[in-house]
Nucleic acid binder design. Structure first.
Lengths: 242, 242
DNA sequence: CGCCCTCTTGATCTCCTTCAATGACAGTGG
DNA sequence: CCACTGTCATTGAAGGAGATCAAGAGGGCG
């Protein structure tokens, strides 16, 4: 299992050299078990991680002990990069399912900036996309109802799981507990439960085991507080290929 | 009035050449009036803006018409860069006070990546810092009470205004209306009002006109859901100086 | 088999919203 | 110079979305 680069292909035409640079960023894969935490808030760091397989959460603990899941990561994501501007790790990385990651030392990233400016620019672009995702999440959590937030999350997951081939007829596996969903949406697990059941009763979604199906996508989109965003392809500020 | 680069100095030792590169990024300053909107969601963009003076808000409108102020920007910030990964602008930029900005075309940024990798890396670092700020905001808005959110905001503003010389004895001008504060914190203006007055009554803060004073900083910090973050200086992934 | 995690449901509480009205103040036009 | 208008702060009353507390049921796993 190697680092999936579909998301970079969606941002720019890659030369063979650039593809190689991306794939060789994190040469050694680490297999991790469900529940394993491999980065904790406050840790001293010397690099970050490529996300090759599985589901991984990035969380923060507030004063008072409440946990906030800042993002659920999927293969293709880059993990731990917010911390690269800090003295210690900003977030805790925990495997939701069995997962695979590849470590990338900061030295390697530095080389990217000097030897492969276009790939470095793509890295920046990935960071901006994460930032946009946070902006949307903030908008949703700050100003939308529980069902609106949940609708948005499900649509977002569908969109992100699709290019990985993990969505069939608008249905996908959702390995998150309702408590995780609560921490992700700023709700209690109790209220997540009630909201999910309401939406199920109304025929918006269907569940069986941990598989979820978006039955009425149009209505979910109407409930969602924000539409999905359209990424730019080869934006003007991207350096020329190497 | 020119682009203040204090925040980059806090991230790395800058050579004269690099300082020049930063200062010359946006050579032409534009003066704007309070209330002016100079970028709207959905606009086609060809660059971004350096923030030289004044207060500027970055907002998003939700389905249903609610406005979310994603961030209040201060001099030294870079405006409009989340949109550089998109086909159209993600946010609306509006002057809260009279303000000054300088436009930077995407072409100029591209040159940075090819000719000044270290400055490009600092740009990425600035983006990561914005992302961290959003993470914290999300944590606060999703899981903290109105007074905790407000405490955090005030402490954050104090920390950001200090290097600009705009804080005296923990007091600073706050040109935000209570409605703006509400849009920023995910609250109604009514509730912002009640919360502010409560905090004033309890001696946490004091107000006169639009000037606010943090009377009991220690208690505000105790109420705030998150401590402030410590930025790294010259992280290992930063290319060597030019 | 027994334990723990997760889901589910009910009852109650509360923080924040909504709706509404008032006063202070700044800008603006006559 | 002053009435007029719109913005902003303030406060009260009522309602609601979601939190909290509590308890039971089902299921996976050691």
């Amino acid at each position: 299992m190697a680092y999936p680069i579909h998301r970079y292909r969606a941002l720019a035409e890659l030369t063979d050299k650039e593809e190689l640079a991306l794939r060789e960023l994190g040469p050694i894969e680490t297999i991790r078990r469900r529940g394993e935490t491999f980065q904790r808030e406050g840790d001293q760091l010397s690099g970050f991680h490529l996300h090759n397989a599985g589901w991984i959460s990035s969380s923060i603990v507030l004063r008072g002990g409440k946990r906030l899941i800042q993002k659920v990561h999927l293969p293709g994501d880059i993990l731990g990069t917010p911390s690269m501007a800090l003295q210690t790790a900003a977030d805790t990385l925990t495997c939701i399912t069995d997962a695979a990651t590849a470590f990338v030392s900061y030295a390697r990233l530095r080389d990217l900036y000097t030897h492969a400016p276009r790939v470095a620019a793509l890295f920046t672009m990935a960071v901006q996309i994460e930032r946009l995702s946070l902006m949307d999440m903030l908008a949703a959590v700050g100003h939308a109802s529980a069902r609106a937030r949940l609708s948005r999350l499900l649509l977002d997951l569908r969109a992100r799981l699709s290019p990985l081939g993990l969505v069939e007829h608008d249905a996908f596996d959702l390995p998150l507990t309702q408590e995780m969903l609560g921490d992700l949406l700023g709700l209690t697990s109790v209220h997540v439960n009630r909201t999910i059941r309401d939406m199920e009763r109304e025929g918006l979604i269907a569940r069986s085991d941990h598989r979820i199906k978006l039955v009425d996508v149009a209505k979910l989109q109407a409930i969602s507080p924000l539409p999905l965003r359209h990424l730019a392809f080869e934006p003007a500020w991207l350096p020329s290929p190497i």
